[in-house]
Design a binder for these strands. Structure first.
Lengths: 203, 203
DNA sequence: CCTTAACTATACCGATCTGTATACCTTCCC
DNA sequence: GGGAAGGTATACAGATCGGTATAGTTAAGG
């Protein structure tokens, strides 16, 4: 299920989990560079000694934060896809439904990967492949779902769905207008209908 | 032309301009919190004394950075809109053309406003209204342009264009796939054709 | 029983951070 | 010719940064 293995993965003791939870909240809310390890330790109710015994350095906390978030999102999305009706269009729309629910619960400030990318940028940073990896995975998912619906234009349709989805996450984070993910879902729906209408006559 | 007045605006001496240019480059490339004033001063070839004489504090440099970038983008976009053909659809597409050219020149890491928002978040920060202001302004622009094309669904069409545009900027910044702004432009075009086809029969 | 893992508490290190102070040097303008 | 204004150069202050060191506590397990 995961794609970002081989790196990281730490002994997840109770204290380590509390550190990760505190760090995730603080990083997402205030930004990575704006949050110090002293604050993370204090908010987690943990000593700095313990924090460094578990994670080794701050960078590792960042890696665990993003890897964990990525993992949780994929599991969350998988649940929605499993529960969705088998029709290809319904499965695409289930992605937007999952995003809408996820945003309402954990993500009122936009995509954590996009936000982290604003602060990291250096491709040699160990967290970088997690960020780009999730986006590539999402594009592949949209493309795969589009293939079941309109095989000859799957790549094109997948990219359009990707843009709508990413745009909706940004619009959600900056509160550009109300419920942008619902709007993106609606737009995706008309897009899918059009694709079904023109596509089922392949070569 | 500008919407973010009343705040900031500093005596733009030659040294101050060099500071602003260095800060803009560093902030965008590495993130706001990751760049210190010592580095900005050094890169600008300016003493810290001079930097603080002009800007007063780092926060003010951030404000000037975003306000200046907003101003430049609006002027850049205005130039493209003035040069565009008067047809409503052509003017919408001119926005995407402007974005594509702007991204190629100054913005290979996504939207600076979105990236800044990842680090700032606090609505009481003096830079916050600049960030949200630009997004609101862009939505209003898309909606206004859509109104000339399909008045009764201008709000809906404007939002869709906004999502496509924002999504393309993110995809560009994370290199999710090649030339996403061109893809968004193409998608906008089919969207506009469909809107023209169904709309010119208003009440 | 005794080791080991997981922790607390506290104090410290050097580096870097934003911001200030002191002193001097030009150029322009009244 | 004498202030301002806009600079340079350097040194410093206090806070905070990531990270380490030392010492002691608690619980589980062979």
């Amino acid at each position: 299920m995961g794609s970002s293995d081989k790196l990281q993965r730490i002994t997840m003791t109770p204290a380590a989990r509390r550190v990760l939870e505190a760090a995730a909240r603080l990083f997402y809310e205030r930004g990575i560079h704006a949050v110090g390890v002293d604050l993370i330790a204090a908010e987690a109710g943990v000593t700095k000694k313990t924090l460094y015994d578990r994670f080794g350095c701050k960078e590792q906390i960042v890696v665990e934060y993003l890897a964990d978030r990525d993992e949780r999102w994929r599991a969350f999305l998988a649940g929605h896809l499993d529960a969705a009706e088998p029709a290809p269009a319904a499965r695409v729309l289930a992605v937007f439904d999952a995003s809408r629910e996820w945003a309402a619960q954990h993500s009122h400030k936009g995509c954590s990967m996009v936000n982290a990318h604003a602060e990291i940028s250096d491709p040699s940073h160990p967290a970088y492949p997690i960020i780009t990896g999730q986006k590539q995975w999402m594009l592949a998912l949209f493309t795969d779902l589009a293939r079941d619906l309109a095989p000859e234009r799957a790549a094109h349709l997948g990219r359009t769905l990707m843009l709508l989805h990413e745009g909706a996450l940004v619009a959600q984070g900056l509160t550009i207008f109300a419920d942008p993910i619902a709007h993106a879902r609606e737009q995706a729906e008309t897009l899918l209908i059009a694709a079904i209408g023109t596509s089922p006559a392949p070569a």
